[in-house]
């Protein structure tokens, strides 16, 4: 679908055409999810927040005045949801801190039991989410299938050259974070599956 098609779709959706809105959402919900991922408090539920974005989109699509700027508009909705969630998380964390007898959260599966590839992927995403959003957000957006560097530039209100510079720097920052984490917490490095002869003998 060309950019012109998408603008037309956004225009029809803003005019109240439900089918156009449905298609627009299917095209861009991954983009909205990527924005949430870049700004999400770690404990927030992505699916719940994305549902809030969908509801907000339905409620406010009639207010879209510039269909060609649908992506930045959708991003602002997702950003607002992420910030609201961050405030809620902050309040919850504050309340939890004041409760001495708060039961500890159940521990997640140990990294050593996870598939090494999945663990490395989750770790890369977590560290990308910890980067300054100016760098982390375009880096996460870049991983959304079908989203071009030009569309990222439009969504962020930047030039393509600026996005390229940020992406290049973001990669370097991510590598530095990964190296620092490995240096400080070598035990968090993903262990290879226990398939040694000793393990087999133990079994």
């Amino acid at each position: 679908m060309t950019d012109a098609d998408q603008v037309e779709l956004a225009r029809r959706a803003a005019a109240g055409e439900r089918a156009a809105l449905e298609l627009l959402w299917r095209l861009h919900r991954r983009f909205a999810a990527a924005v949430l991922l870049a700004h999400l408090p770690r404990r927030a539920d992505l699916e719940d927040l994305l549902q809030e974005v969908a509801v907000s989109l339905c409620e406010h699509i009639g207010e879209l005045r510039q269909p060609e700027r649908f992506l930045p508009w959708l991003r602002s909705i997702a950003l607002n949801r992420a910030r609201s969630s961050a405030r809620r998380e902050s309040l919850r964390a504050h309340a939890a801190a004041s409760l001495d007898a708060l039961p500890a959260e159940p521990a997640g599966p140990a990294a050593g039991n996870e598939d090494a590839t999945r663990a490395a992927a989750a770790r890369a995403l977590e560290l990308a989410g910890r980067l300054d959003p100016d760098y982390g957000e375009p880096l996460i957006m870049k991983c959304v299938r079908g989203l071009s560097q030009r569309q990222i530039a439009t969504a962020l209100g930047l030039s393509e050259a600026a996005v390229e510079t940020r992406l290049a720097r973001a990669r370097r920052l991510l590598r530095r974070e990964l190296e620092q984490e490995e240096a400080v917490l070598p035990s968090r490095r993903v262990a290879a599956p226990r398939t040694s002869a000793a393990d087999r003998a133990e079994a």
């Binding site: 990527a34 991922l37 999945r118 992927a121 890369a124 995403l125 991510l174």
Partner: peptide
């Protein structure tokens, strides 16, 4: 790694 991580969440 990052692409896999993002894909899984998305």
């Amino acid at each position: 790694d990052l692409r896999r991580g993002v894909e899984e969440r998305l």
